[in-house]
Amino acid sequence: MDTLLINILDPKATKLLKDLEEMELISIQNPGESGFASVLKKLRSNSDSTPTLEEITAEVESERTKRYAG
């Protein structure tokens, strides 16, 4: 199986791709729906509050300090 990144220049091409997907010749995935972003979205939906970028950065720096202190 090959994976390609395609920039669609003409909206008519989207219909062609959807037709190919319906014929089960290709599978279409939205980049936002797969990978790391998808995992983050799922985890954040289970949380009461989402940490800010500053909170995440502070936690990462804290862990790095612990790891490399010894």
Rank of each mutant, 00 (worst) to 15 (best):
M1R: 07
M1I: 04
T3K: 13
L4V: 15
N7A: 13
L9H: 09
L9P: 00
D10R: 12
K12L: 08
K12V: 07
T14N: 10
T14W: 11
L16A: 12
L16D: 14
L16F: 09
L17G: 03
L17E: 04
D19I: 09
D19M: 13
L20H: 08
E21C: 11
E21W: 06
M23P: 00
M23E: 15
M23N: 12
E24S: 14
E24F: 04
L25A: 12
L25I: 14
I26L: 11
S27P: 00
S27I: 12
S27R: 13
I28G: 03
N30V: 12
E33W: 04
S34C: 13
G35L: 10
G35A: 10
A37L: 12
S38E: 11
L40H: 00
L40V: 08
L40T: 00
K41S: 10
K42D: 06
K42T: 10
K42L: 08
R44S: 10
R44P: 00
S45K: 05
S45W: 00
N46G: 11
S47Y: 04
D48N: 14
D48C: 03
T50E: 03
T50D: 02
T50M: 02
T50L: 02
P51N: 04
T52I: 00
T52P: 00
T52E: 01
T52Q: 01
E54H: 04
E54Y: 02
E55Y: 01
I56T: 06
I56P: 00
T57E: 09
T57I: 09
A58S: 12
A58N: 13
E59K: 13
V60C: 07
V60L: 15
V60E: 06
E61T: 04
S62W: 02
E63L: 14
R64W: 08
R64C: 09
R64K: 14
T65E: 14
K66Q: 10
K66T: 12
K66D: 08
K66P: 00
K66V: 08
K66C: 01
R67D: 08
Y68L: 14
A69G: 03
G70K: 15
